[in-house]
Structures are given as structure tokens and as C-alpha cells.
Design a protein around this nucleic acid. Structure first.
Length: 979
DNA sequence: TAGGCCACCTTTTTT
DNA sequence: AGGTGGCCTA
């Protein structure tokens, strides 16, 4: 007994679905169509899962039915319908993986088949930690497809993952635009866990047989319906009982898998090649003859599924794959009726006849596949019977779909019409004979496989150049090689600062034989220290004694020095410190903020209560209490970690001498960010004859509020008169317009940064997007990101500007950062980007305890403060909130605090980008409950038009849906969610 | 001592 | 807006 199953469809929680896409209507339409098993779809969506749990009950293992009383009444009566059982549901869903692999953006849709509702709940919860599963029933995840497979099997080994509509150009495992050339490239060592492939609307099994690499897979077909009416336009025929374990077994082994019900693939939107704008349809042969270009406009043609299949094909047409299953090609009944009645498929006439036929003849699939022609003729007329007969024989004329244009079916020619309908018609339904399609070509052995394409590794000739200097420019080389006197390097953004530092370290160790323990490299952040260490290991793998190298933050070094001399204490965290300040401040009636600032100042000047003598200020008394409390609690604060070790060194000459003897080589990163205490610590550590290299960029000094002062940078040459200055003048990061913009910004502060030359190409100007509100601003950002990634879904298809970009040029989510001045802007941006289906993350949050490999592997857009972006690089950088008062930040009523530093901060933001910068602004912004009209940031205002393009909101923005080719055009716009 | 109400304030960050 | 701390009351 045949069991027809449609496993891939979507609920109303998916984007661009009708609100009728619920269980009740799926059950109803499953019965109308004649399907016994229906996937739930969207099994990663928490609300949908809740609905499944509420409304379904198990009827067999992993198989569910509507709870009693929930089924909708059929519009139909009669013996065929009165006792028709409801459909059975199995748990299915789809995820969209958008990620970079091999330097290219990949977009792969996967169909999931899970063995139980419980498994789905666990899977959803797990995915929810890696991305956003609530915005869309088909979530967009920045995760490698193979991890999804791993995860599904980890949740339950009975799960099945089926690559979805595998040939579509934009979103599939073999797709021409963002896919792979083989399943193995995608799933690697897990490929054996893939058992089935979904052929999609634009291809049928016969096309897939031409690729012998697919022979071992079960070829499945599903509707991918976005509304229940579209259910089962493609489907699977199983010859096993309708329960999950049997279906899964059949999908794994092919045994009990009876074949598929298909669209005519030419009807699909991407079947053949062409160019929509020119209305040009092309066969792959024509495309080849035209060199892939549209002969009318010479733009690249969009390759269709057929083309892609032929690219990978290694078997002749008309030869079935071994063990191939048969398939039947059908046209949905409403379309057949539309052809017969010469009206639209959505018309009342069609609808009326549709249900009349169903009532008399049974479910739609039965009518299309099996109902005897004479019965069709009796209930629907000769023309209908004739048309369906033609369809069953495959005699259908279809102008193939291309470049997003649906194929056009013509079932009946005018002559046929006349003949069949005319007086004394030549055609009448034949006597009842089995009207099934001719059997598919019998499976044969496939062609012998091509010899494997062996790649011979090219021997790399031994390099005569010192490898540690190879690839360095002259200034970098100088920084690496310099010895004998202190060195100060001024290194702008992207000029290879870390490169120079790490190569110098490696050179010291490996060429000059400096013992690792004599080297001290200091950074400001753990991340920078970690990166430096990793890069040294990369340069000198297996070098003995690397562990004895000291690469630390200033604070870590200070902590280590302190604990070597005193009883170790913990470092007070933010909360502890605030608590102690509050207590001390309260007792002595000193405002906490004031006390905080005073104590910081004191410690940065290496001053402790005992140095303040008998001053009677309440602040001093509070300071004493605070220090006593820290001590009682066994705590140091961050400033202690610098000030105290410095005092130890200055007060104990022998200790200082010991450190100075040990560290003969000192390197300091981000030298412009030293504060007074750090500067003194560094001076205390540096012997007169030590070899010193400091590197930094005074234009990027942004920690003045923390007591840092770029003054020490310029003072270096006074402190070390023998110092040699080096200036890195070549940037490898900034494309010319960004470099230009950055320099223009600095010029506004009266600073003319030294000469700079860029090796980065790219002429994209900065883009300024001004919107009415911060919500519109966030949506504009989301839209641009979507463009950069090259479209997130079929519905928001790549526009002309991006669609022909090669996959290498497209961005992955991790290539994008959104920067802003205040944390307060972060959550709102995150909310909107998330709602638009863009995986994003504010790194503060991710500092959770249970970060595993997958968490780290998930690609996300980063949301960062400008400060936090320091030292990072992203191809695409958005700077949000480019408004006067916000950038540069001017606290309410107080006016500019430090316009110089704000200017540098903006400079830092701009110079994070290696491809393009987007500046955005909200004309009205609500911040901390106060709504204000804003002006464009003066820093942006001053940028010249050659490098800054302004793009107003396109007036056609509201006509989105008319511009966009729709996969399911009958669906209205997505319902607005209440805020 | 819990709970409720009100006033306040809001940049950027280091083991 | 929204969270926090302070202060008052029962």
C-alpha cells in the first residue's frame, strides 16, 4: 500500500507564509490532496513546537495526529470523504546555513527529520544558543552545514538531515552561486551520514541520474509549501507503514522507498539559463556559445539548474542510475483546470470545479494520477480528461523558467481545444485502461567512472630569503632587525604592527639566539597577548622554550610581580570595587563617583594613603577605609596591579635590578595608550642598556579617560635620546576611499597624519545612510548586510548590484561589524538585526561560561563599541549613530569633553574596515527616554563628496514586494508583529 | 526585615 | 526607558 509523504513545508512562523499555515489546515489539505504523512515543518521554532505539543498526540513512534476534536470539517461529503482519516505528522524543519568555507560564502538549506517532538525541543534549544530560532521558522544560522548534521545526530542518532532542493543556485549544497561541487566538500567526514537528497522543484530524478556521484542517495521530493494549498505539489511514495521509524529506514536504505511525485522541472524558476532584464531565455548550449554573456546587454547570464547539472554530469541523458526509483511528473490540478477553463488558477471558477471534482472523484493526487479518463470526462468534461491524459504521458509544452521567471505551461493548444470540444470531436476518452505513465527507463549500470583527478603537489623551491623577513616591507624589516638602541615605531592602521612585533620576537629568538626568558612583551588586552603568542607559535612551531617567553598584559605582569613579593590577593571585580567604594564614600559623605576618580588619580600617581600624611580631607579618610577594606577582603583593584609593583621596584633597588637583569628585551604594543602608572612601571623595568621596542599610533589614542596619554609617545625620544624612530607608511588594510576619509577626519583635528600609501584596492566610497528613526536606521543596516551577504532568502533575492558578485566577494556574517559610541545603542540594534534574521552578537554577552566549539564556530555579525573595536579588522564596518552629540560624544549640557579624543575614536572606527565603511544616522533618536532631533555628525559632515556617497531611502522601498520575484506569489506580505 | 516608592543617572575598560 | 540605591513604612 502506498503512503504518500510530504516532508518539507513551512508553518506560519516562517517568513512569507500564510496565516493559515497551521496544523489544522495542513491536516485538512493533506486530506484534500491525498497525502497520508505530512511534515510539521519549522521544528526549530519554539512557538510552533509549543503548538505541536499542545495539539498533537502520538499515534505511532515519532508520528503524531491531531488531538480529537481539532480536525477541521471537510467541505466535502460523500462516501469518499466521510471516513477519511486525518494525516499523520512527523517532525520536520529546515535551517539555512550561511557561512564561509574555503574563502567563499556558502548558503546551504537543510531539511531535518527528527524522531520525536522531544528531540525537536532539545534541538531547538541547542540551536537557540547558537543563533536566533525565533525570528523565522527557517532560521538563518552562521553555522557550517556539517555542524548541523553533527548536532542533529548528537541530539538523537535517529535524526536525518537531507540537503534541501540541492540544485537551486542561491541556497543549496550543489548550487552554482553559493554551493559546493560535491556532497563531500560540504559534509566531509560526515558525508556517509547523508542518505537522501531533495531534488527541488526545478529538477527531477532523471536530471539527477546524470551525476553518478549521487547514485547512492535516495532522491526525495517535497512541496516546500508556504501555504497548505501548495501541499504535495511534490511528494514521496513510501511502501512501508506510515510511522517515523519505517520512513527513516526507507530513506536510509532505499528499501520501501517507492519513488516520487514531481513537478515538471521546466516549470521551476531556475530551470534553464537566461537574463530576466532582457527577457532572454537560453539553453546551456546557447549560453556556452555566447560565452556566458547575454547577447543583448553583455551582462552575465544567470545559470539555471539544468546548466549546473550538466556541469557536474558524467552520464548521458536517458540512462537511469542504478537502483533508481520511478517518478511521476504532474501539474497541480488548479493549474490544469485553469488551462481547461482558460482562467487564472486562483479564480472562483477553478476553485468551484476543483472541489466539485474532489467530491466526486477523490483527493487531488488520485485525480491527477489514477482516476480513469472516462470518469474525468464525465465529471469534468472531455477537455479535462484529454489534458490530464497528456500530462500523464508527459506530453506537455513548457517554456522553461529562467533567472527567477517561472516556466509557462501550455497543456492544450488551440487546435486541440477545437478538436476535443468541437462537434463530432475526434477525441473521446479511451475505454478504461490503466492510465499510468510509461515505466521509467530501466535502471542500468552507470558509465565507468572518470579517472580521479589527481593533484600533484608542486614542490616549493627552497627560499634563499630569510623566511622571517620574507614578505616584510623595508620599514617592517628595519623594526625586526634593529639592534643596539631603543626603537619607537609609529604604525598606523593596517600597517603590520603585530606582524612587525611578532617577527621581531621570532627573530630575536631564532636568529639572534636571545633566551626566551630575557624577553618581555607587553600588551593592553589579553586578546592582543593571546594573538601575539599564537602568531609566534605559527612562525616558530616547535621552537624550544617558547613557554619561557613572557607575553602579557601590563596588568597580568603586575599581578605576577606582586604575588612574587606579597601574599597573593584576588583582583576585585567591578561589583566588589563599587561596593567598597560605596561603603567608604557613604561613611565619609563623599560621592562615589568623585571618590572613584580621586582614588584612580592617586594610584596612577603611585600615591597611597600613607603618602598623603595628615590631610584632613574626607576623601583621604575614605581612601584609607577603601584600602583597608580591600586588604581585609584580600583584594587588589586593577590600578593596584600597576601601581604597587612599580612602587616595589622603586623602593627596592635590588629587586628592580633583578628584573632589569632578567628582561634584556622589552617590547610594548599600543604604546600610545600608556597611562602615567604604566609608563612608570615600564621605565622602572627598562634598564639603560636594555633593547627596547615600542610601537603604537598616536592617532589611535582613545583611553584618555583611563589616564592614558599619547604624550608619552612623543616624550619617548626625550627619555631615550638614542632612540631610533621608524614610521610604517604602507597600509595593507584600508582601501583608498577609507584611507582618505580617515585622513580627512584627522585633519579636522588639525593633525596631518604622516604619509601613507595603501596596498589595498577597492574604490567603494563610504556610504551614508540617514533614516528617520533609530529603528529605520537599524533596518537600513540590516538591509545592507543582507546585500553584502548576497541575500538571505529567495524572497529577498540578490539585487543587480550583488547577484553577480563571485562567492569570494560576498560577505559572511563574521565579515561585518556594527560599531557605536555608547553601549546603550547596542540592544536596539541587536533587536532589529535579529528580527531581520541576521545572526548577531554583542561580545559582552558571549562571555558566558559554557562556550563550546560550536558557539565559536557560529558566524555572527559583531556589535561593538568603538572602543572595543580597537585593534580589530573587518571587511565591512558600519558606524551607527553618526550624529552630533553622539559622535563625538558630548555629555548633556557639558559640551565637548575631549573632542580630540573623540576625533581619534572615530578615526579608529573608520580604520577597522578593509573593504567598505557604512555610516548611519537616525534623524530622531530616543536615548534614555528622551527623544531628540539630531544633526549629522560634524565629523561626517566634513567628509568630501568624492569619498562619501549619500543614499536616501529609496522611494520604492515600500514597493519591495512588487520588485521582488516571489517564490510563492499568492502570499500577502508578512504580518506585522506587535511591538 | 520586607516591600514599596521615588529619585537618580546613564562613555569608553584593564587579571 | 530601565535599573539601582536610598529611604520610608508596616
Amino acid at each position: 500500500m502506498e503512503v504518500i509523504a510530504d516532508l518539507h513545508l513551512h508553518s506560519r512562523f516562517s517568513i512569507a507564509t500564510g496565516k493559515e499555515a497551521d496544523l489544522e489546515h495542513l491536516d485538512l489539505w493533506g486530506r484534500y490532496k491525498g497525502v497520508q504523512v505530512v511534515g510539521t515543518g519549522d521544528c526549530t521554532h519554539p512557538q510552533w513546537l509549543q503548538e505541536l505539543a499542545d495539539r498533537l498526540e502520538p499515534v505511532a513512534p515519532g508520528t503524531y495526529g491531531l488531538k480529537p476534536g481539532l480536525g477541521l470539517p471537510l467541505k466535502l461529503q460523500g462516501p469518499l470523504w466521510d471516513r477519511l482519516p486525518g494525516v499523520r505528522f512527523v517532525i520536520t524543519g529546515e535551517v539555512s546555513c550561511i557561512y564561509k568555507k574555503g574563502g567563499q560564502v556558502r548558503k546551504v538549506h537543510l531539511l531535518l527529520l527528527l524522531p520525536s517532538l522531544d528531540a525537536a525541543q532539545r534541538f531547538s534549544a541547542r540551536l537557540g544558543r547558537l543563533g536566533n530560532v525565533t525570528a523565522d521558522g527557517r532560521p538563518i544560522l552562521g553555522l557550517d552545514a556539517k555542524y548541523i548534521l553533527e548536532l542533529a545526530l548528537e541530539i538523537d542518532p535517529a535524526s536525518l538531515v537531507i540537503p534541501a532542493h540541492i540544485w537551486t543556485p542561491w541556497f543549496s549544497v550543489l548550487g552554482a552561486k553559493s554551493g559546493f561541487d560535491s556532497l563531500e566538500e560540504c559534509f566531509e567526514e560526515h558525508t556517509s551520514q547523508i542518505y537522501a537528497l531533495e531534488t527541488g522543484l526545478s529538477s527531477d530524478p532523471a536530471m539527477n541520474w546524470r551525476v553518478s556521484g549521487l547514485d547512492r542517495f535516495v532522491l526525495v521530493s517535497n512541496s516546500d509549501a508556504h501555504s497548505p494549498q501548495k501541499l504535495a505539489r511534490e511528494a514521496n511514495i513510501f511502501l512501508v507503514p506510515p510511522a517515523f521509524p519505517n520512513l527513516a529506514q526507507a530513506l536510509r536504505t532505499k528499501a520501501g522507498f517507492g519513488g516520487t511525485i514531481e513537478f515538471f522541472p521546466q516549470e521551476g524558476k531556475y530551470h534553464t539559463d537566461g537574463h530576466r532584464a532582457c527577457g532572454l531565455r537560453a539553453t546551456p548550449e546557447e549560453t556556452a556559445a555566447w560565452g556566458g554573456k547575454c547577447p543583448r546587454c553583455h551582462k552575465p547570464l544567470t545559470y539555471g539548474v539544468m546548466h549546473r547539472v550538466l556541469d557536474l554530469a558524467d552520464r548521458e541523458a536517458g540512462v537511469a542510475a542504478p537502483e533508481a526509483r520511478p517518478f511521476e511528473s504532474l501539474i497541480p490540478l488548479p493549474e490544469v483546470l485553469a488551462q481547461v477553463l482558460e482562467v487564472g488558477p486562483g479564480s472562483k471558477k477553478v476553485n468551484h470545479l476543483y472541489f466539485r471534482l474532489l467530491e466526486k472523484l477523490g483527493p487531488e493526487l488520485e485525480i491527477l494520477r489514477r482516476t480513469p479518463l472516462e470518469d474525468l470526462a464525465r465529471e469534468g468534461g472531455n477537455l479535462l480528461a484529454y489534458g490530464i491524459d497528456k500530462m500523464r504521458q508527459g506530453r506537455v509544452h513548457i517554456a522553461a523558467g529562467y533567472d527567477g521567471v517561472y516556466g509557462e505551461i501550455r497543456l492544450l493548444t488551440p487546435e486541440e481545444r477545437r478538436e476535443v470540444l468541437g462537434q463530432g470531436a475526434l477525441w473521446s476518452p479511451p475505454a478504461p485502461v490503466s492510465p499510468t505513465r510509461p515505466a521509467p527507463p530501466s535502471p542500468e549500470r552507470g558509465q565507468p567512472a572518470e579517472p580521479p583527478n589527481l593533484k600533484v603537489a608542486e614542490p616549493t623551491p627552497p627560499s634563499p630569503i630569510e623566511p622571517l623577513l620574507a614578505g616584510l616591507n623595508p620599514a617592517q624589516r628595519q623594526a625586526v632587525l634593529h639592534e643596539g638602541s631603543p626603537l619607537i615605531v609609529q604604525a598606523g592602521p593596517g600597517t603590520g604592527k603585530t606582524r612587525a612585533l611578532t617577527h621581531r620576537l621570532a627573530y630575536l629568538l631564532a636568529r639572534r639566539g636571545i633566551p626566551p626568558e630575557e624577553i618581555l612583551a607587553l600588551t593592553f588586552t589579553r586578546q592582543a597577548a593571546g594573538e601575539m603568542e599564537a602568531r609566534i607559535r605559527g612562525l616558530l612551531p616547535d621552537f624550544p622554550g617558547l613557554a619561557r617567553l613572557t607575553i602579557k598584559t601590563f596588568h597580568a605582569l603586575g599581578h605576577q610581580m606582586l604575588t612574587a613579593q606579597e601574599e597573593a590577593r584576588e583582583v576585585a571585580d567591578e561589583d566588589q570595587r563599587r561596593q567598597l567604594l560605596r561603603e567608604a564614600g557613604k561613611k565619609h559623605k563623599v560621592p562615589v563617583a568623585l571618590l572613584d576618580a580621586r582614588i584612580s588619580d592617586w594610584k596612577q600617581a603611585l600615591t597611597y594613603p600613607e603618602d598623603l600624611g595628615e590631610v584632613n580631607e574626607p576623601e583621604v579618610a575614605a581612601f584609607k577605609d577603601y584600602e583597608a577594606a580591600l586588604s581585609r577582603g584580600g583584594l587588589w583593584d586593577y590600578e593596584d596591579l600597576i601601581a604597587r609593583p612599580t612602587l616595589l621596584l622603586t623602593r627596592q633597588p635590588d629587586l628592580q635590578e633583578a628584573y632589569r637583569r632578567r628582561y634584556r628585551h622589552l617590547l610594548v604594543d599600543e604604546y600610545q595608550d600608556l597611562n602615567a602608572a604604566q609608563y612608570r612601571l615600564f621605565r622602572a623595568l627598562a634598564a639603560a642598556d636594555a633593547e627596547i621596542m615600542v610601537i603604537g599610533d598616536p592617532d589611535q589614542a582613545i583611553y584618555g579617560f583611563r589616564g592614558a596619554s599619547p604624550e608619552y609617545f612623543s616624550r619617548f625620544r626625550q627619555d631615550w635620546p638614542a632612540a631610533v624612530p621608524v614610521h610604517f607608511e604602507e597600509t595593507y588594510r584600508l582601501p583608498p576611499p577609507v584611507l582618505d576619509a580617515a585622513r580627512q577626519v584627522r585633519r579636522q583635528a588639525g593633525v596631518q597624519p604622516g604619509p601613507m600609501e595603501t596596498h589595498q584596492n577597492g574604490e567603494q566610497p563610504l556610504l551614508l545612510l540617514e533614516r528617520a528613526t533609530e529603528a529605520a536606521e537599524a533596518r537600513a543596516i540590516a538591509r545592507e548586510i543582507e546585500r553584502l551577504v548576497g541575500g538571505l532568502s529567495h524572497l529577498a533575492l540578490e539585487d543587480a548590484a550583488t547577484r553577480h558578485r563571485s562567492p569570494e566577494e560576498k560577505a559572511g556574517f563574521r565579515d561585518v561589524a556594527v560599531l557605536y559610541r555608547l553601549h546603550a545603542l547596542g540592544p536596539e540594534l541587536e533587536r532589529h538585526l535579529t528580527a531581520q534574521g541576521i545572526p548577531c552578537q554583542m561580545p559582552r554577552e558571549s562571555v558566558g561560561p559554557e562556550l563550546d566549539g560550536l558557539d565559536l564556530a557560529a558566524e555572527k555579525v559583531k556589535l561593538l563599541t568603538l572602543h572595543a573595536a580597537k585593534g580589530l579588522e573587518f571587511p565591512y564596518v558600519f558606524i551607527a549613530g553618526c550624529e552630533a552629540g553622539l559622535i563625538p560624544w558630548e555629555p548633556e549640557g557639558e559640551g565637548h569633553k575631549d573632542p580630540e579624543e573623540e576625533n581619534r575614536l572615530f578615526y579608529v572606527g573608520l580604520t577597522r574596515a578593509s573593504r567598505q565603511v557604512f555610516l548611519t544616522r537616525a534623524r530622531s533618536r530616543t536615548l534614555w527616554g528622551r527623544k531628540r532631533r539630531t544633526l549629522l555628525s560634524p565629523l561626517v559632515q566634513a567628509l568630501t563628496p568624492e569619498i562619501l556617497e549619500r543614499r536616501e531611502e529609496s522611494p520604492g522601498a515600500s514597493s519591495r514586494k512588487t520588485r521582488q520575484p516571489q517564490l510563492f506569489p499568492e502570499i500577502g506580505p508578512r504580518p506585522k508583529k506587535a511591538r
